[in-house]
């Protein structure tokens, strides 16, 4: 890892993000900082209000002393990372078997109608991003369910979805 890489773009990361990355890096042995890439990307995505840019991924690579391309690999692999501009609040409706049987498709349809966007799209005001596809989030007992920015909302009905979406700022 060249020196240019470690000095260059790391400045894009906020102090809070760096603290978060430091916290995760400390959990892994010396020289295994690559293991902290997922956590670091999560912090960076949060800092940028919902999605990652190439510059931010470069910054993560530079800060962790990991080749940028390995950061891109991780970011493009996991569905919780968005590498294109997306809304601030990530709405993920589970459409796996239990939720599907309990009417998840209707919930998706309702949200699409309410937000005026299709899955995979963000609202024009940049507030909501309706994720394309979400697999089982282990809340089958209260299906159908959705997750918005790591908070679970269960036993959904169209009315309840409206309440939730209205309550979010």
């Amino acid at each position: 890892m060249s020196e240019a890489q470690s000095s260059g773009t790391a400045g894009l990361l906020s102090e809070h993000t760096r603290h978060e990355i430091d916290h995760w890096r400390a959990k892994f042995p010396e020289g295994r900082q690559r293991s902290a890439v997922i956590a670091a990307l999560r912090a960076a995505q949060h800092q940028n209000h919902g999605y990652l840019t190439s510059e931010l991924m470069d910054a993560v690579g530079a800060y962790l002393d990991v080749p940028a391309i390995q950061v891109y690999e991780v970011a493009s692999f996991y569905s919780m990372f968005e590498t294109k501009p997306a809304g601030r609040l990530h709405v993920s409706v589970c459409t796996n078997i239990s939720c599907m049987l309990c009417g998840a498709d209707k919930i998706v349809e309702h949200i699409e109608k309410r937000l005026g966007v299709k899955t995979g799209e963000s609202t024009p005001d940049g507030k909501f991003f309706l994720k394309r596809e979400e697999e089982c989030l282990a809340a089958c007992n209260n299906a159908p369910m959705m997750m918005i920015d790591h908070v679970y909302y269960e036993n959904l009905t169209p009315e309840k979805v409206d309440q939730v979406l209205d309550s979010l700022k």
Partner: peptide
Amino acid sequence: TAEIAGVQELGTMGRGEGMQISTWV
């Protein structure tokens, strides 16, 4: 690129059927 050249210039982006060999940028 990672092991012989010493600078990883190519990577595996995405996963499953969407996986691609690429430089990303």
